[in-house]
Design a protein around this nucleic acid. Sequence first.
DNA 1: GTTGAGCGTT
Length: 263
Amino acid sequence: MSHFGRTGPPDITDTYSLLVLNITFRTTADDLFPYFDKYGKVVDIFIPRNRRTGDSRGFAFVRYKYADEAQKAVDRLDGKVVDGREITVQFAKYGPNAERIDKGRISESFSKSSYRSRSRSPRRRYRDDYKDRDYKRRSRSRSLDRYDRDSRSRDRYRGRDRDYRRRSRSRSRSDSPDYYRGRGRGRYDDERRGRSRSQSRSRSMDSASPARRSPTPRRSASLHRSPSPRAGSPDRHSGDRRSPTPHGVSPTDRPADSRSQSP
DNA sequence: GTTGAGCGTT
């Protein structure tokens, strides 16, 4: 009972999968079990998590034995506050075997002749995208990158998603890749890092810009001086604030300021 | 210790 997802999928042919989103990163299958078990027979609960860190991704899959129970759970647990977070319960659309799911029910016996193109899955590209995006960006050169972006442009993303994607890209290239780490997305950082390390060499060769490596030492020096005035004297009890600044503080000193405070 | 859009393992 407490070993949900430990031994793999038991029987997914006659089970209805529910996708639980917006759950806390600390919520486990056992924590969700009582919530869903109250509304029906829960066959299995699986929470995808990082293979390396082992942290939950923030969503879980709950499999019910009957559709009516699953439906009830969705209606009752959707929007329910669990562990201090409002969870989102809905029928799963995609199966573990990349099979199509009908109303949460995993139907592996679906024939291609039955339904050919019902509706393209716009959200499925999300996960596949972030991976492909990083991978291609590092392994391929800039030209291909643009081509890729154009190619996928045809799909037309949703408003906020597209913006988020574009912004990150822009910032990461012009500002600093730290944005990614600071933002959080560490769930797949391991994968990203592994790839980048391997492709590190390739990327260098592609760039081929030896004389283009100028981290602007002048600006660096200025920055270091400002926040670290330790070069002066730790014991400035003398009260003489002019002492610790014998040299030019910065190329853009502010005489007006000095004058202002000493009429 | 943090994060927060989304669809899954033996």
